[in-house]
Amino acid sequence: MINFENITLRVQQQTLLDGTSLHLAPGDKLVVRGPSGCGKSSLLKCVIGMFPIAGGSVHVDGMELSANHIPQIRGRIAYIGQEPVLGAESVREALLLPFTFKAHHGNQPDEKEIFQTLERLHLPSSILSKPSKRISGGEKQRVAIARALLLGKNIFLADETTSALDPGSKAAVMAELFRPETTLLSVSHDPDWIDACNRIVEIRHADLQETGKGDGHDG
């Protein structure tokens, strides 16, 4: 599903990862841990071509991350950061934004589908008419996830997604992202999140090391 082969990531002179490999199978729920600045977020961003790879290769669904495949790869993955950007005036416009692009023309969801998706994420339908800037951080995250679900995405890159959520919202988000059919590559310090993952990988000395639960050291 997502394969990192001998990848090297660098920031200026610092080597974050040095020729290391990692393979995610469909349905894997993997959390990456490690001290601040060790390259966790960069690892997530490199999957979608937003962080340059200094060496090695990344494959998603058998497609190598390259100029030719980048649009298809981005089309299959949802990236949910700590502060998602909705990129439109109102919440309704934000949800429908992707369907204004050629890649998703004609696939616009109907009202019923939108309401059901919002409900699954514990969001009231009245939020649709609210300005994107006026909703809380937790609501923004759930709207971003709702948008990804409406696009039918099932590979999620989640960077500290639950850090600003109340317990109710967190449960709703986790219920969606931890469905059996989704593949999840994440960064989190949240014990509940880490518990829910079936794989834990730690960045140590510029290497990715798979650890058992309760074996990691976060910064």
Binding site: M50, P71, I77, E83, P84, V85, G87, P98, F101, K102
Partner: peptide
């Protein structure tokens, strides 16, 4: 940059 990246992630071409 985050907003721009979001558009790309939602399937926009560079021109979009």
């Amino acid at each position: 940059e985050n907003e721009f990246t979001t558009y790309l992630m939602l399937g926009a071409t560079l021109r979009e």
